[in-house]
């Protein structure tokens, strides 16, 4: 972090007022090297593209029609799935109906709520920000969906379908964290997720059992496994990718996959007692 700020000490020492409080002279960017003789002549290492993605040099703008390959597959859960404990809610809030824990959801041997995404192999493309909104609902004093994957630039629209109050407490890192109350009947809380963000929880402090996971990607190649553990990543360009599967409590797994234009590859991840 802030590697770009390195060298300011040196810049400062070179300004007319070493050790004083005068700021280094305004400059275009902070990427100046320590060897530059004055702040004014600081070179900028950054390209002039407005996206600011230095790594994007030589890359092309992505559009959907460029991807014709598909990676699909399944998340298996080996062994006996843990029982999801019932949650008694009425002793905290009589307006909550009661439910069950949903951290590990297994159906037909498949594990739901695993986020699958392309992690490496997309360096050749530049992706526009995502658009539109995705919904996160509070219903029956639980979150729907329990795991939400979205693209940077999209808005998460948080609604309250319950006849009770919740507080939406987000622990996002690169996007502004917040803790906003949402009584019954209050309008949706709209939060634009402008930056990619590693998986973070959104919780309700009033109903301590309420939690969900949100992850924000800076590209469109991600999905969440369905209730039977199946997933599909369509519209990929041909290439070799590192695929990452991430479950909120069972952790991360990786796989490498190569797809050709128009082709489909199958990848299976395996979690559970017999998993490594």
């Amino acid at each position: 972090m802030n590697r770009s700020l390195i060298g300011l000490g040196a810049l400062l020492a070179l300004t007319a007022c070493g050790g004083g409080d005068s700021a280094p002279k305004p400059q275009k960017s902070t990427t100046g090297s320590t060897s530059s003789s004055t702040a004014e002549t600081t070179t900028t290492a950054k390209s002039t593209d407005t996206g600011g993605a230095a790594k994007a040099s030589g890359s092309q703008d992505w559009n959907d029609s460029m991807g014709t390959a598909t990676v699909s597959g399944a998340i298996k859960f080996e062994g006996v799935a843990p029982e999801n404990k019932a949650i008694t809610m009425s002793d905290v809030d009589p307006k909550c109906p009661g439910g069950a824990e949903e951290t590990i959801l297994v159906s037909n041997g498949g594990l739901a709520n695993v986020v699958i995404s392309v992690n490496k192999g997309l360096d050749g493309y530049k992706f526009a920000k995502g658009t539109g909104a995705v919904n996160l609902d509070q219903k029956g004093c639980q979150y729907i969906p329990h795991v939400l994957a979205m693209q940077a630039g999209q808005t998460v629209s948080i609604t309250n379908s319950d006849d009770t109050v919740h507080n939406v407490h987000s622990y996002s890192k690169r996007n502004q964290a917040f803790n906003q109350a949402q009584p019954a009947g209050a309008g949706a809380i709209e939060k634009k997720m402008s930056q990619k963000d590693k998986s973070f929880p959104i919780k309700c402090d009033m109903h301590a059992w309420m939690n969900c996971q949100v992850v924000v990607f800076d590209h469109p190649f991600f999905t969440v496994s369905d209730e039977n553990g199946n997933f599909t990543l369509p519209k990929l360009p041909a290439g070799t990718y590192k695929l990452v599967a991430e479950h909120e409590s069972l952790g991360k797994q990786e796989a490498e996959v190569t797809v050709a234009d128009g082709g489909t590859e199958t990848v299976t991840f395996s979690y559970g007692q017999s998993a490594p």
Binding site: M1, N2, R3, S4, L5, S22, A23, P24, K25, P26, Q27, S29, T30, T31, A45, K46, G52, A53, A54, K55, R174
Partner: peptide, 12 residues
Amino acid sequence: GFIQKRYDEEED
């Protein structure tokens, strides 16, 4: 000059 918009390279 005390407040500037600055670029963080690592975080882009």
